[in-house]
Nucleic acid binder design. Structure first.
Lengths: 319, 319
DNA sequence: TCGATGCGCGTTCAAATGATCAACAGTTGA
DNA sequence: TCAACTGTTGATCATTTGAACGCGCATCGA
């Protein structure tokens, strides 16, 4: 029932001296404005190697391109979202309908986190593709600021490299279970496991959470990864579900429904989630508008990271 | 006696919608990985225009390239510096003897500040080319985090654009006098001016200061900009001066000398400077090694931003 | 009104870059 | 021991990029 979420290469644990090489190459290339050939001469490697080092650095998030605009994105839409839905903050990335949304929102979420997280913070993470992508971009910065991770649900271990760059200080506390298990009894037992309880308790103390938003359709990531069947989803839809967070389905007003599946999920309780002061939801796409609207109405999240088209539709369909 | 320090263009005050254009172009180009041609199509402008927007964004610091290595620079040297001189922090940029040092150290200092400054912080700044360069790169990020500036000395107004991107919240409090004036009496009077006193008092409350380090030679920036004559410098050297900060000359042990010029300077008192918990000195170059050594021995600064060659020499000449 | 000056813009072209491909080394498994 | 496989390296070439140049427009002063 549980599968890996991340098939593509996860955040690569570098060789230690490769990091050094990337760092120096990046410094010379970007800050000193040298050409790749000149950098190659200084490092004593071939030009193409420099090109690859830089590429690797950018892919992995080691080299971050930060846009320091007073409003990175669409300022007006951000403000409108904040006031229309009473949010704490919002990020809106410019639209590009033909480009895949997940990496775009993931990057925006990563950039948001890197801006907002302070040294020694604890970041709680949910389940989902967008969260996974965001973490891939943001996680190289965590050891530096001694940011620790804690999971809000089971099933996230698949996309967080617990080894990787994580040093002795920074740490990742993951619930070592699937997101959903096959029976209420098993879920209950797992939730009572000491380590699982420990992680769940810790998650409730985080200052910032990043969560994904699931849609109620057979295209849902939950279905794709085998945690739900299409049949179940159809049933939930008839019961009024418009979306899910952390495996909990809610209706258009953001009220959590009373469903059997909720008792099969190994995750923080929704009441505890609400105690996390900054709950950022990262989601975009017109098919997710209903889900996002419910989420915001129910105040399940108070920060939204989305794209222009989605933001406009959210505002049109209004509160 | 006072001259402008910064002849080149200062941080440009953009058109508001130009910032928007730069932001979107940067997003599409760097985050979405589109080519300049594709970005041009999306924004409805010519390709070369996109190229220029990006260039402008990078120049101005609006687009920041951040290297998220656990150790951006030379980790080993940084650690050695910290332990050898009892520093709070250090940054070492890789060496490149043929490149001009000031912009390189300036960038490193800017990057350090952007990493360390927290929202609503107050940053105190000294006088000097390196400080000016660092500010040019870092200042576009200040309005975003509501970071304010306060000057530690006179003479800085030349290189801080008080208008620029500064909005209603962020602010720059600069001492509106030259660094040094021609008589003790005048300096005294200026120091007693209400606004000057206000700024000096405020500076003493800053959590972070960025200061430059002057050398004692006829090539010193102080001489170049007419605040001192070569003759004076020679005199100071005979009295044992190895460097200066904020116009105060000190000896090899970092003890401030008793010189007439110090009574002509409009600047915070050294005792008050020491109350600022984080005092970052940005300086590099072998001709500055003596000055830096004195500075560190006297604990005038407790953070050092320098380059590899300088760091190695500092460690060799040791504490 | 006219000319001068400066600024923004697009064209052209050389330089820089990254994708593709083939060779190669190291590793695994039979 | 060999063969297959995987991952890394360098050569080649098309694409992408930025610098140099020249044009057109607006502003300014006479």
């Amino acid at each position: 029932m549980s599968q890996t979420l991340q098939d593509t290469e996860t955040a690569s644990p570098f060789e230690p001296d490769e990091v050094e090489q990337i760092t120096r190459a990046a410094w010379h290339y970007y800050n000193d404005g040298l050409t790749q050939n000149e950098v190659a001469d200084m490092l004593g490697v071939s030009r193409i190697k420099v090109s690859r080092l830089l590429e690797k650095g950018r892919q992995s998030g080691l080299i971050e391109l930060r846009i320091n605009a007073p409003h990175a994105g669409c300022l007006t839409l951000q403000k409108q979202l904040i006031s229309a839905f009473g949010l704490v903050d919002a990020r809106v990335v410019p639209s590009a309908s033909e480009l895949p949304v997940v990496p775009r929102i993931g990057r925006a979420a990563a950039s948001f986190l890197m801006q907002k997280l302070e040294p020694n913070d604890l970041l709680a993470i949910g389940w989902g593709e967008t969260v996974a992508t965001a973490l891939r971009y943001a996680s190289p910065t965590f050891p530096q600021n001694n940011v620790s991770l804690v999971s809000l649900t089971g099933g996230v271990s698949a996309y967080v490299s617990t080894t990787g760059l994580y040093g002795p200080q920074s740490n990742a506390h993951l619930i070592p279970t699937p997101l959903r298990v096959s029976s209420q009894e098993l879920a209950e037992m797992l939730r009572l496991e000491p380590y699982v309880r420990y992680v769940l308790d810790m998650a409730a103390t985080a200052r910032m959470a990043l969560i994904g938003v699931g849609v109620v359709s057979s295209a849902a990531t939950l279905v794709r990864y085998g945690y739900c069947t299409s049949t179940e989803i159809e049933l939930f839809a008839r019961r009024g579900a418009v979306g899910d967070i952390l495996g909990y389905f809610y209706d258009a007003q953001g009220e959590i429904l009373d469903l059997d599946i909720h008792r099969h999920v190994v995750a923080i309780r929704v009441e505890d989630l609400r105690h996390i002061p900054n709950r950022a939801a990262a989601a975009a796409g017109l098919q997710k508008v209903d889900a996002i609207l419910g989420l915001l109405r129910g105040r399940l999240a108070n920060i939204l990271i989305t794209d222009q088209a989605t933001a406009e539709e959210l505002l049109r369909r209004g509160k």
